[in-house]
């Protein structure tokens, strides 16, 4: 089967790749581009571990085809820190121990970044509903919510 040629922007870099028409963007990121930060927890859009931002919209990359990234902007966890400076959300996740096993963490960070971009001063309830598309089995979410609250405060002050 012939591949589809795709030109796209990932974390600010121009990227070109060939993929199969039925190949998900998640598989392209992980298997073709070596960007394994997005995880496959379910493959059906239920767990959010593969969350990325596609043209300012939070999506599950397991539900997007690789071919659909043509001409668009993709943001993944690998692009979240600036050089060796962590994003405030990353720093606050560490300080609050908002991760135990860490498999859901990239997805949560991307979802939280998207949430704060749209709502810089969310209430606890808004955070809880804003992150309801991401599953975490370790933490009970308590420390994740606190980390996002703390990061929001830091980012407001910045």
């Amino acid at each position: 089967m012939a591949g589809v040629a795709v030109s796209t922007t990932i974390n600010g870099d121009s990227i070109e790749y060939l993929c199969q028409p039925d190949e998900t963007l998640l598989d392209v990121l992980r298997d073709r581009l070596g960007l394994t930060g997005a995880k496959e927890g379910c493959g059906t859009g239920d767990c959010g571990a593969c969350s990325i931002i596609l043209d300012d919209r939070l999506v599950c990359s397991c539900l997007v085809l690789g071919a659909e990234a043509e001409g668009r902007r993709v943001e993944t966890i690998e692009g979240m820190a600036h050089g060796d400076t962590l994003h405030p959300l990353q720093q606050k996740f560490l300080e609050h121990a908002a991760l135990q096993c860490g498999i859901c963490t990239p997805g949560f960070l991307i979802a939280a970044k998207d949430l704060l971009a749209k709502n810089p001063d969310p209430t606890e309830e808004e955070i809880r509903f804003g992150l309801a598309g991401n599953l975490c089995r370790c933490t009970g979410y308590d420390k994740i919510v606190r980390a996002v609250q703390d990061a929001a405060n830091v980012m407001k002050g910045a």
Partner: peptide
């Protein structure tokens, strides 16, 4: 783990 570099099973 917050930068996506940690290597899990897959």
């Amino acid at each position: 783990k917050v930068t996506g570099r940690a290597r899990y099973g897959a």
